[in-house]
Design a protein around this nucleic acid. Structure first.
Length: 280
DNA sequence: CAATTTACCCTTTGCACGAC
DNA sequence: GTCGTGCAAAGGGTAAATTG
């Protein structure tokens, strides 16, 4: 009798001889209940194999106790460790997680956000794939959806963000290399070819020390900026020929491009990469 | 036949009432 | 006044029933 269709609060209430309200108060842990009824209800629930219906609960409370996460690529070790942390905190607070990949493509990110919003998540954690325009994220805020950005920011979007100071970190790392005696330090960056013109302009400005709006730069550009600033601080020239554009953050992309630099005349004595996966 | 209304899904919660 | 309990409504969307 207990197995056919799933037991509801009504079934438990009937078996325990109480109202659905009382059964609900025991099972949901809200309101007042006597020890006696509590025992009866729990016993009946156990016997019937009752499992709360989160859909119905969410319908009336307006909460799902579920968070949505849009990661770039969960196979990337960076996202894996970020997700691990999110998962730990969510679980400790009684929240579930819905995780999607954007593959760093905004179209997929928009699709993911829409899907998670339809699933009625209570909040979203997103690594925005485009730091300059993100209408869908602005819309989320306008509709009151709690939103936290990871790793990157979006121009004009006032929300909390968890990120590292990429510029300072890169600057620190490169100065460390300089202090160790290196004078020609190569940099392998994710930078794609189609951004080539913008990058050249960016490089030129950074090298002469123009103030740069660095908040909305991609992390790899921020690290490049840190690399350049370290040179400026230490009074070393930046040789553009030492800047390699891998086009992606994969180890394979780095492997394909680094030998060209190392076999050229006057090769670098140290290498700095803008992404952890490339240094493998 | 299309258009509109009703009935449900399952749980939580406001309200009323009785007991202490 | 506080606690314990039950009734009934509500919540968003849709399938089913009813209306014109």
């Amino acid at each position: 009798m207990a197995s056919k269709s799933k037991a509801t609060i009504t079934d438990v209430a009937r078996a325990a001889g109480v109202s659905t309200a009382t059964a609900g108060r025991v099972l949901g842990g809200y309101g007042y209940t006597s020890e006696e009824k509590k025992e009866q209800v729990l016993k009946a629930a156990q016997h019937l194999g009752y499992r709360p219906n989160a859909l119905a609960r969410g319908l009336i409370t307006g909460k799902t106790r579920t968070l949505g996460v849009v990661a770039g690529d969960i196979q990337n070790p960076f996202y894996a460790s970020v997700l691990r942390g999110i998962s730990n905190v969510a679980e400790a607070n009684g929240f579930g997680l819905l995780i999607t990949n954007s593959d760093e493509a905004q179209q997929k990110e928009v699709h993911s956000v829409e899907l998670l919003a339809q699933k009625q998540v209570d909040g979203l954690i997103v690594t925005p794939s485009d730091t300059r325009k993100a209408r869908h994220l602005h819309n989320l805020r306008a509709m009151g959806m709690p939103l936290v950005l990871i790793d990157r920011t979006v121009a004009g979007l006032q929300v909390d963000r968890v990120a590292t100071d990429n510029i300072a970190a890169a600057e620190h790392a490169v100065r460390h290399l300089i202090a160790a005696g290196h004078r020609r330090i190569g940099i392998v960056a994710e930078l794609a070819d189609e951004e080539s013109a913008r990058l050249d302009m960016f490089l030129a400005r950074a090298v002469v020390g123009d103030p740069i709006e660095s908040e909305t730069l991609y992390p790899s550009w921020q690290r490049l900026l840190g690399y350049i600033r370290a040179h400026r601080i230490e009074g070393l020239p930046v040789d553009p020929r030492l800047t390699l554009r891998a086009g992606s953050y994969s180890a394979a992309a780095a492997q394909a491009i680094v030998p060209r630099l190392m076999t050229a005349p006057d090769p670098p004595t140290a290498l700095f990469t803008t992404d952890g996966t490339m240094s493998e």
